[in-house]
């Protein structure tokens, strides 16, 4: 018998050191943090159930599932990001461990496949006046405010790692979901890219 219980650990717990790093000549241009209290689940429409799923989600969660690359907000801290044709990532702010899947599954039974992804992806928040410039070094899409605005989402890559990005506010602040096993490499690239602007890392950020 092990003499120690297994402890739940956030993907970046051992890597994201809090503090001020990189250039120090001016205020930090980039703020980095990890969101650790959000439940994630993938939602994929079952065959020929798309219309029924959209209608059921609207009545159950108070928002339609976005049918283009956007994020939509429902009731009680629930939101949905478009994740490909007839696919979404559902997110629950301050979600209890394992809490999101049963909450969705009851309303979407037979209409969609719902699988908990909370442990499978890390969610990193990147904000600040130079956040856009830092991301531009590794991401091939245009994040200029003319092309990408709060609520917009995209599936693309950052330094050869497939990522899911959506914009939170006009600061600009973005959130990026990364497959958990890639997050160390992603974090290394992100911090190197942010160093010339000076960045402030805080370990954990609340999801709301």
């Amino acid at each position: 018998m092990p003499d120690q219980a297994l402890r739940q650990r956030a993907p970046l717990e051992a890597l994201a050191r809090p503090g001020r790093f990189g250039a120090t000549s001016a205020a930090a241009g980039v703020m980095l943090s990890e969101i650790r209290d959000r439940g994630l689940a993938s939602v994929a429409a079952r065959k020929n159930q798309r219309a029924a799923l959209l209608a059921a989600a609207k009545s159950a969660f108070g928002c339609g599932l976005p049918t283009r690359p956007r994020r939509a907000f429902g009731r009680d801290g629930l939101s949905f990001v478009w994740a490909g044709p007839d696919q979404w990532v559902a997110m629950l702010d301050h979600g209890p461990v394992g809490g999101i899947e049963p909450r969705l599954a009851a309303s979407l039974k037979g209409l969609a496949s719902v699988v908990d992804q909370s442990d499978g992806r890390a969610v990193v928040r990147i904000g600040g006046a130079r956040a856009r410039a830092a991301l531009a070094k590794g991401m091939p899409i245009d994040l200029h405010e003319r092309a990408f605005t709060p609520g917009d989402a995209a599936l693309t890559f950052f330094s050869h790692i497939n990522v899911h990005i959506w914009q939170v506010d006009e600061t600009p602040t973005y959130e990026i979901a990364v497959p958990r096993s890639f997050v160390g490499s992603f974090w290394h690239w992100l911090t190197e890219a942010s160093a010339e602007f000076g960045y402030e890392a805080t370990g954990s950020n609340s999801s709301a």
Partner: peptide, 11 residues
């Protein structure tokens, strides 16, 4: 048709 115009590195 789903994501908009993207570079061929994504494909």
């Amino acid at each position: 048709p789903y994501c908009g115009e993207r570079g061929n590195a994504e494909y």
